[in-house]
Design a protein around this nucleic acid. Structure first.
Ligand SMILES: Cc1cn([C@H]2C[C@H](O)[C@@H](COP(=O)(O)OP(=O)(O)OP(=O)(O)O)O2)c(=O)[nH]c1=O
Ligand SMILES: [Mg+2]
Length: 627
DNA sequence: GGGCCGTAGGCTT
DNA sequence: TTCCAAAGCCTACGGCCC
């Protein structure tokens, strides 16, 4: 028996729009005086009946099941279980508390209505008008004037129009945002050379030293910094100052448009601050997690995490529980993590739904071209290619292959992508995407110069679609702070070492590992069905016997890869026939029955945790697994 | 029992 | 009529291969 009691029914009753919380469930700055009920109703009216709506309903049903399952698990906990987990939780909390570090001062900055502000700056006639940056199908952000009408980021444009008839639209212009972002970063640099940029418009600065060296307070730094940014960009921003990043981020949102909020480095102040703070304000806790915690355990504020600590430990994975408890204690990242390199690069396009295969292949071709360009622009190659599909009814699927060698040429990409897509056809799609991961710097590779030869392909600029093509590549995006900083304990730079080293080491191994293995696929499926090579060879040592492609001396590696295509081609064709694919179906079957883990038997208390561990990332947290 | 792969899905801007 | 994005990161988990 848990705290499941006392949670409101959440039903739709005679006001269906009230239950359609599908999006926009989080409070956003600038939405204070908005008639939420009315907005909700408009959104509901415009959404209901659509494919999108149907899919949202389906997803909601799934999370409802998750919640039911958790409740059941919770109800099955015995007194013994509970007291056990209470001890576990208390121990955890003590450890976490012991790791509290109040010696650092962190500042988080967040530009105000960034894209919209930039557009207004470039075109002053937009000033004062309700503005949406985006298209009729999607709004990236809205000016504060527009927000008064309920218009906001991630809202489809046509709904924005309904909410705000005079809404002005401007298409995104990423070069501009990148430019202004760089200007702000020049300012950040002066306050913390190791600042962490988490997006074009956000960054964390460790201002501890500035405060000490100049003998000023965090508040003074914030004021000065914001002023400097305004001076040098003409844009306003908001700032939050706190002893750790997690809290600083929350603080920067408090006085959002052009304001700041400072939380002193004082334990009591932090605990008080966190005591009434809605969990949804914490980065990493989104709509689903919020609902689960509230509807299963009755948790809605951070402090309540501590009251339900035992249940959190009983129901969620260790990582998740640590994260939750950290939140309850107001702990977050305090050490500057290692510089992080990108892990994937991707592009995707939404289009009018179609099941026309030739049309789909055309689009795939364009995606491949796009991805190659982006990869080559950054001098990267990758081993895992993932095809993303969104069906006409908004269901998302991904299909991936991992190759033996690193690839980045268009034809390589296209060969694999095509196979992946073929295996799914026929079907009607509204989006396709390609992502390359397991990246590796091209430069580190001895057998360099790759693309030259394979670039002998179309170069035509595709039809830039409706707009919304990101290009945030630019600078040093140190994505997602992921507060996990493994505690200073271990000398200097302990954490990052592992993963980053991993990458670089495998990079060095790369050349060696591309032995004469003909099959470029790592997947055992292909290997298994092999043993029947289509005997591709090199005429005169450099002309492909199958397609006639020429790869002169000096392109040994390319020849190997090229051979791989042909082999993989034949192998995968066989494979596609013997429906090895559709693992997704198994998964669905799995879903039907609420996960394996039965409630915790008293004996193997541990096993209860093996249950359905809910995600939750460790953003911002400290969660020092002390290693 | 660890490590890798593939898939789904959550979260953020 | 149009009419719900794009890019990236992370965890969980089952299956497979050692
Ligand atoms: C939230 C969100 C933002 N963005 C882009 C547009 C935003 O201007 C930019 C920064 O995001 P935010 O900082 O979340 O939003 P904002 O700066 O526009 O407004 P404010 O901070 O004052 O509340 O990122 C998207 O493209 N999609 C999104 O879903
Ligand atoms: Mg912002």
């Amino acid at each position: 028996m848990s705290a499941a009691a006392g949670t409101p029914p959440e039903g739709g009753g005679d006001r269906p729009w009230q239950s359609y919380h599908t999006a926009y469930t989080n409070a956003k700055a600038g939405m204070e005086g908005v008639d939420k009920e009315k907005v909700q109703k408009v959104i509901y009216e415009m959404s209901k009946g659509s494919k999108y709506f149907e899919n949202e309903q389906r997803k909601e049903a799934v999370t409802k099941q998750k919640i039911e399952h958790l409740r059941a698990q919770c109800a099955a906990l015995t007194d013994n279980d509970i007291s056990h987990f209470q001890k576990v939780a208390e121990k955890k909390m003590l450890e976490l508390e012991a790791s509290r570090d109040l010696s650092k001062i962190w500042l988080h900055t967040d530009m105000d209505a960034f894209y919209a502000a930039v557009e207004t700056l470039e075109n002053p006639s937009l000033k004062g008008k309700p503005l949406a940056v985006g298209s009729m199908s999607m709004i990236a952000t809205a000016s504060y004037e527009a927000r008064k009408f309920g218009v906001r980021a991630a809202m489809p444009g046509f709904i924005g129009c309904k909410l705000c008839p005079g809404l002005v639209f401007v298409r995104p212009n990423f070069e501009r945002y990148t430019h202004y972002s760089e200007l702000t970063r020049k300012v950040f640099q002066r306050y913390d050379p190791n600042f962490i940029a988490t997006s074009l418009d956000e960054a964390y600065l460790n201002i501890t030293n500035v405060c000490i060296e100049r003998g000023i307070t965090g508040e003074e730094v914030a004021t000065e910094l914001r002023s400097a940014i305004y001076q040098e960009t003409g844009l306003t921003c908001s700032a939050g100052v706190a002893p750790n990043r997690m809290i600083a981020k929350v603080c920067s949102d408090i006085n959002k448009p052009n304001g700041q909020f400072i939380l002193p480095n004082d334990r009591e102040a932090v605990l008080t601050f966190v005591s009434t703070l809605p969990i949804r304000k914490i980065g990493g806790i989104g709509k689903v997690t919020e609902q689960m915690l509230r509807q299963v355990l009755g948790i809605s504020t951070c402090q309540e995490m501590l009251q339900k600590a035992a249940f959190l430990c009983a129901l969620f994975s260790e990582g998740s529980a640590d994260f939750f408890l950290s939140v309850g204690l107001g702990l977050g990242g305090t050490e500057t993590p290692e510089q992080r390199q990108r892990k994937s690069i991707s592009c995707e396009r939404t289009f009018a739904a179609t099941n026309d295969s030739s049309l789909l292949f055309e689009k795939l071709d364009s995606l491949a071209e796009n991805l190659t360009d982006d990869l080559q622009k950054e001098g990267l190659k990758g081993k895992t290619l993932t095809l993303k599909l969104k069906t006409a009814d908004f269901e998302v699927r991904t299909r991936a292959v991992t190759t033996r060698n690193y690839i980045n040429s268009k034809e390589d990409i296209l060969v694999y992508a095509t196979k992946l897509l073929k295996a799914e056809m026929p079907l009607s799609l509204r989006l396709m995407g390609l992502r390359m991961s397991q990246l590796h710097d091209e430069k580190d590779d001895p057998s360099t110069s790759t693309q030259k030869t394979l670039d002998i392909f179309f170069r035509s600029s595709n039809d830039q679609q409706d707009f919304f093509l990101h290009d945030e590549s630019c600078f040093i995006p140190e994505q997602r702070s992921f507060g996990n900083h493994s505690n200073e304990a271990v000398i200097s730079k302990p954490l990052g070492g592992t993963k980053l080293d991993d990458v670089s080491s495998s990079a060095k191994v790369a050349p060696a590992e591309k032995l004469n293995e003909p099959d470029n696929l790592i997947s055992p499926k292909a290997v298994a069905s092999s043993s029947k090579p289509d005997q591709q060879s090199w005429i005169d040592g450099y002309i492909c016997s199958i397609c006639g492609f020429e790869l002169p001396p000096g392109f040994e590696e390319e020849r190997l890869e090229h051979s791989d295509f042909h082999l993989a081609e034949t192998l995968q064709q066989e494979e596609a026939v013997d429906g090895t694919r559709h693992i997704s179906n198994e998964r669905l079957a799995d879903r039907e029955r609420p996960c394996s883990t039965t409630p915790t038997p008293k004996k193997k208390l541990k096993s209860s945790k093996e249950g359905k561990h809910i995600p939750i990332d460790a953003f911002f947290t400290k969660c020092n697994k002390n290693l």
